[in-house]
Amino acid sequence: MSSIKRGFLFLVLFAHWNIQGQENLTGFWQPQVGLGYQVSEQYAHNFSVASRFFIVEEGETTFSNRQIDLVHFSNYKIRENQSLALGIQYRFRESFDGGANELRLTQQYNQRSRPFVIRFGHRIRSEQRITKARTTHRFRYRFALDFPLQGEKLDVGEAYLVATVEPLLSIAKGRNPEYDGRISAQIGWQLQKDFKIQFGTEYRMEDFTHTLPEHVFFILSSVQLTL
């Protein structure tokens, strides 16, 4: 294992240890099922359903559903390693914890490169989060890297690691700008040519310029099917 790979594993373990020391943190489990397919050679669709469950709320262990997201992305390849995408998402929350339902529109640019074994990805998104009360504009940049854990290329039956870092800025009328930071690491398996599963963890520091930023951790699990 190269020093970069070791460094990221250490970072993930450190992040996990660090949040365990915090009081009043929130924990979620977020399972997700995604389905992707090519419409034409340049154009692809992705549909997903994600659900978010409280597992830790105000320090207490619990298990209750907070929301369900239905998500669609239309992805257009502009170069071999670059793409533009438009997304639409609806979040059902009112029936679960009484929070506002949300319609979200997303515009996305992604670029990736793979000099050797590790693949690097840069994703820029702008979002409009529309609720009854307000529209929040969010801007985010995500740096991602992924690499196979056995050998130099990912074969069927082999595992891989995905790690990301993402700063976010949210702006809404009559509100102070909010800065968030996210870091995640997931381990995945390419079980079939068109089927992957992933498990991992994500740590979010929300509104980190505020005197009392919120600490949120996620247990992530997902399946991704490709037709």
Partner: peptide, 20 residues
């Protein structure tokens, strides 16, 4: 919903394992 999500995820997982 929690039971449904859990069931959906486990079904997909098993399908992947068997297919491999």
């Amino acid at each position: 919903m929690p039971k449904f999500s859990l069931l959906l995820f486990i079904s997909c997982f098993l399908w992947g394992i068997l297919g491999t």
